[in-house]
Amino acid sequence: RRRVRAILPYTKVPDTDEISFLKGDMFIVHNELEDGWMWVTNLRTDEQGLIVEDLVEEVG
C-alpha cells in the first residue's frame, strides 16, 4: 500500500470528512480521488478521512 508523510500540519474544516494532522504524521492511502484529495488512515491517530495531496510527500 502507498504511504505518504505530512510535510505541513493541517486543521480540518468543521463538518467535513477531512482529518486534522501534524507535520510528520504517516498515512496509508486507500483511495485517490479527484482534485488531489486522498482517503487515508492516519497511522498515529488511527483516524480515517480526507487529506489533500499537496500537504504530503511520498515515502520510499
Rank of each mutant, 00 (worst) to 15 (best):
R1M: 15
R1H: 15
R1N: 15
R1F: 15
R2P: 07
R2F: 06
R3G: 05
R3L: 14
R3E: 08
R3D: 04
V4Y: 07
V4A: 05
V4R: 05
R5N: 04
R5E: 04
R5A: 06
R5Y: 07
A6W: 01
A6H: 00
A6D: 00
A6T: 02
A6M: 01
I7V: 11
I7H: 06
I7L: 11
I7W: 06
I7C: 08
L8R: 13
L8D: 07
L8W: 12
L8Q: 15
P9H: 11
P9C: 13
P9Q: 11
P9F: 07
P9W: 07
P9T: 14
Y10P: 03
Y10H: 09
Y10A: 03
Y10M: 04
Y10V: 02
T11Y: 07
T11A: 08
T11S: 11
T11H: 09
T11V: 12
K12N: 05
V13C: 13
V13G: 09
P14F: 07
P14W: 07
P14C: 08
P14T: 08
D15Y: 12
D15E: 11
T16R: 05
T16P: 01
T16Y: 02
T16Q: 03
D17N: 13
D17W: 11
D17P: 10
D17T: 10
E18C: 06
E18Y: 04
E18T: 07
E18H: 05
E18M: 08
E18V: 05
I19L: 13
S20Q: 03
S20A: 04
S20V: 02
S20T: 08
F21S: 01
L22D: 10
L22T: 08
L22H: 10
L22E: 12
L22M: 12
G24R: 03
D25N: 00
D25K: 01
M26L: 14
M26Q: 09
F27I: 03
F27V: 01
F27T: 00
F27Q: 00
F27S: 00
F27R: 00
F27H: 02
I28K: 06
I28F: 08
V29Q: 02
V29R: 01
H30I: 13
H30G: 05
H30S: 06
N31P: 01
E32Q: 12
E32K: 12
E32R: 12
E32F: 08
E32D: 12
E34P: 14
E34Y: 12
D35R: 11
G36R: 09
W37N: 06
M38Q: 03
M38V: 06
M38E: 01
W39A: 03
W39V: 06
W39E: 05
V40T: 04
V40R: 00
V40L: 01
V40F: 00
T41M: 07
T41H: 10
N42L: 14
N42I: 03
N42K: 07
N42T: 02
L43D: 04
L43I: 12
L43C: 12
T45P: 02
D46F: 15
D46H: 15
D46L: 15
D46T: 13
E47G: 04
Q48C: 13
Q48Y: 10
Q48H: 12
Q48N: 10
G49P: 00
G49H: 01
G49W: 01
G49I: 01
G49V: 01
G49N: 00
G49T: 01
G49D: 00
L50G: 04
L50N: 04
L50M: 13
L50Y: 09
I51E: 00
I51W: 01
I51D: 00
I51G: 01
I51L: 08
V52H: 14
V52A: 15
V52R: 15
V52S: 14
E53Q: 14
E53L: 11
E53M: 15
E53A: 14
E53W: 15
L55Q: 10
L55H: 13
L55G: 05
L55P: 01
L55A: 11
L55M: 14
L55V: 06
V56T: 11
V56H: 01
V56N: 01
V56C: 08
V56A: 04
E57A: 07
E57Q: 09
E57S: 07
E58H: 09
E58S: 10
E58L: 08
E58C: 08
V59H: 07
V59W: 12
V59E: 08
G60R: 12
G60S: 14
